[in-house]
């Protein structure tokens, strides 16, 4: 009985705070993406001819935790298979956050664009079978255009 109560308590905490967090995070992400849109992020290596001398490595990372509600939802979903929507949104948010942090790093160097941008994932956490936390890491080369 106590176990069931704890489970329900954790689940409701996960639903309430997890949802609220996700909503406010998505709002902040689209605002910051607009703000950072002057720094182009490109995944190509071919450089245009009009670049100023020099370049620098820029990076951004974020470690996110998955909430209890998402864990339960995905455990249920794993019985039937199919899309794990809760993890999809989580990873999408984290990836966008990492890219924004990389853009901020580039902005602080006065760069105009980031070439060869890569995003890398690694699992951080105590239980290897579950994603306790996940790190998304974005890096690339910041360059300046010649004026």
């Amino acid at each position: 009985m106590g176990g069931l109560l704890t489970f329900l308590f954790l689940l409701s905490l996960g639903i309430i705070f997890g949802r609220a967090n996700e909503k406010s995070h998505l709002k902040r992400l689209s605002a910051e993406e607009d703000q950072m849109s002057h720094i182009k992020v490109l995944s190509i290596k071919t450089l245009p001819p009009n670049l100023a001398q020099g370049g620098a490595l820029v990076q951004g990372n974020v470690v996110i935790a998955v909430d209890y509600f998402k864990v339960i939802m995905s455990t249920i979903r794993m019985i039937f298979g199919g899309r794990l929507n809760s993890y999809e949104t989580l990873l999408d948010r984290a990836r966008r956050e990492a890219i924004i942090r990389m853009q901020k790093d580039a902005e602080s160097l006065g760069a105009d664009a980031i070439y060869n941008a890569r995003v890398e994932f690694s699992a951080v956490g105590q239980q290897p079978q579950k994603i306790g936390g996940a790190e998304l890491f974005a890096y690339g080369t910041a360059v300046r255009f010649e004026t």
Binding site: N61, I64, A65, D67, G133, F137
Partner: peptide
């Protein structure tokens, strides 16, 4: 991190560590 696993969100300590 254990607490954050209930409510979700960023693990700032780990972000800094990495």
């Amino acid at each position: 991190a254990g607490l954050k696993n209930i409510v979700g969100g960023e693990l700032k300590g780990y972000t800094e560590l990495l």
